[in-house]
Design a protein around this nucleic acid. Structure first.
Length: 423
RNA sequence: GGAGAGAUACCCAAGUUGGCUGAAGGGGCGGGUUUGCUAAACCUGUAGUAGGGGAUCUCCCCCUAGCGAGGGUUCGAAUCCCUCUCUCUCCGCCA
């Protein structure tokens, strides 16, 4: 959510910046709605002021045994008028609010223009794509051969885009999860939590998942909860409607969670393998920081995620998302993409974003400056550190040998109970 | 699932015959007096916030809202009515 006062004063400028996302975006209806709302509000409040005053007079008159019939009669009319104005104002305000709810965050300076992921900018590359002296197999074939991934039975038990991890595959999934969590906790000073895996509407709205992405989520029918599409939802909402002390910042929270995604618009995409599933595991990192620090913190955050790939020795690149590919709430996003031989390209395993005060404003998340004074909205960031399922796929594919065995990266050996090779 | 109790400011806690109570009283915190320092005592200040307006526009003034949330009754609601949420206690069930 944008600050509507800032919007009022800089409407044209904001609109211009937002066109980096969408050249069609038009904020002009806001001006009228805002003006109308304020006008109605002023009229209403003036009458309320009058009502409050006269009610006091009526109270005094009654106490002293005087007649106040004419005043009461007058106030009956005023009360009626207030009710009318209130109704009208609420209608306008609703429209005003809804308009505001649908405006995405303003892209930061440096976000490249562009319509979709084709125009994201590569800014870094670590290790060259894996080369093979033989024909490498895709992870779904290897996974089946090694009996560590079972999509067929996943479909049987749940449906398409579900799978079982089995045997050393299940072990690898768990090892990665633990490795990620341990590393972030020990070396990047994260506080670890286990969050709810469902959340309510307010929480979904708070991070910007609603109102725009309703169809991307699973909703529980009998109570209206949503299955979280990412742990970002509970983690960012953890301190909702709270005022933190500046000394507490930055607050760094991490957790593992399963992520549930409807993948409504993805028919036919990535139908083979475990790259795009309705449920996958992810370790998520959330930072709540001072507004002056958020862009510096984003560099740290993306570095924390990159560290995971480097320790696993997986080739990756870092891209800056262009305006058209930027998430609704984000002002600036880096994606980390791991090399996936079966796709013959890099695939996203982490997305690290600075949301500036966009989520904080929706969520009511402030801090009190150390030197005193008014509390203000802080900045929120998050990043995957990392998506576990896709990392598993990357390990299987990048570290296979000509015998169809998979070599486990050394950093995971202890976590794998000594298993160094699958197969 | 059944039966009760509750939700008031940073915390505890009065207030439910509707009207100088936007909120008594504690505690805590800020400031001050006394004091060699500490402690203690005394005095004093303590809605944060949201929205709107004004201004000598980074912090000042005015107004509106705000006693769990949302509606309603009334000239006027913390107080009366309805709906919802959450917390606690007992019973039942359960990982």
């Amino acid at each position: 959510m944008l600050d509507h006062r800032m919007l009022r004063e800089n409407l044209e400028h904001c609109n211009q910046r937002l066109r980096v996302r969408d050249p069609e975006l038009d904020l002009s209806p806001f001006r009228d709605l805002d003006q109308k709302r304020r006008q109605l509000l002023q009229e209403e409040e003036n009458l309320k002021k009058e009502r409050n005053q006269v009610s006091q007079e009526i109270a005094r008159a009654k106490r002293e045994g005087e007649e106040a019939g004419d005043k009461i009669e007058e106030m009956q009319r005023v009360a009626g008028r207030i009710k009318e104005l209130e109704t009208e104002r609420r209608e306008v305000e609703k429209e005003w609010q809804e308009f505001l709810d649908w405006i995405p965050n303003i892209p930061a300076e440096g976000v490249p223009p562009g319509a979709d992921e084709e125009e994201n900018q590569e800014v870094k590359r670590w290790k060259e794509p894996t080369s093979f002296a033989f024909e490498p197999l895709p992870h779904w074939e290897l996974g089946e051969k090694l009996d560590i991934i079972d999509s067929r039975r996943g479909s049987k038990v749940a449906g398409s885009r579900f799978y079982f991890m089995k045997n050393e595959g299940a072990l690898l999934e768990r090892a990665l999860t633990n490795f990620f969590l341990d590393y972030h906790r020990r070396h990047h000073s994260y506080r670890e939590v286990v969050p709810p895996f469902m959340a309510n509407r307010d929480s979904m709205f708070g991070v910007g998942q609603l109102p725009k992405f309703e169809e991307d989520m699973f909703r529980v029918e009998n109570n209206g909860f949503y299955l979280i599409p990412t742990a970002e939802v509970p983690l960012t909402n953890l301190h909702r409607d709270e005022i933190l002390e500046e000394e507490e910042l930055p607050v760094k929270i991490c957790s593992y969670s399963p992520c549930f995604r409807a993948e409504a618009g993805a028919h036919g995409r990535d139908t083979r393998g475990i790259i795009r599933q309705h449920q996958f595991n992810k370790v998520e990192l959330v930072n709540l920081v001072h507004p002056d620090q958020s862009f510096a913190q984003l560099e740290i955050l993306v570095g924390e995620a990159e560290k995971m790939l480097e320790l696993l020795e997986l080739p990756y690149r870092r891209v800056v998302l262009c305006g058209g590919d930027l998430g609704f709430a984000s002002a600036y996003t880096y994606d980390l993409e791991v090399w996936l031989p079966s796709s013959d390209k890099y695939r996203e395993v982490s997305s690290c974003s600075n949301f500036t005060d966009f989520q904080a404003r929706r969520i009511g998340l402030r801090f009190r400056p150390a030197e005193g004074g008014r509390s203000q909205f802080l900045h929120s960031l998050n990043g995957s550190g990392l998506a576990v399922g896709r990392t598993v796929a990357a390990i299987i594919e990048n570290f296979q040998d000509e015998k169809g065995q998979v070599h486990i990266p050394p950093v995971l050996h202890d976590y794998m109970g000594g298993v160094k090779i699958i197969g």
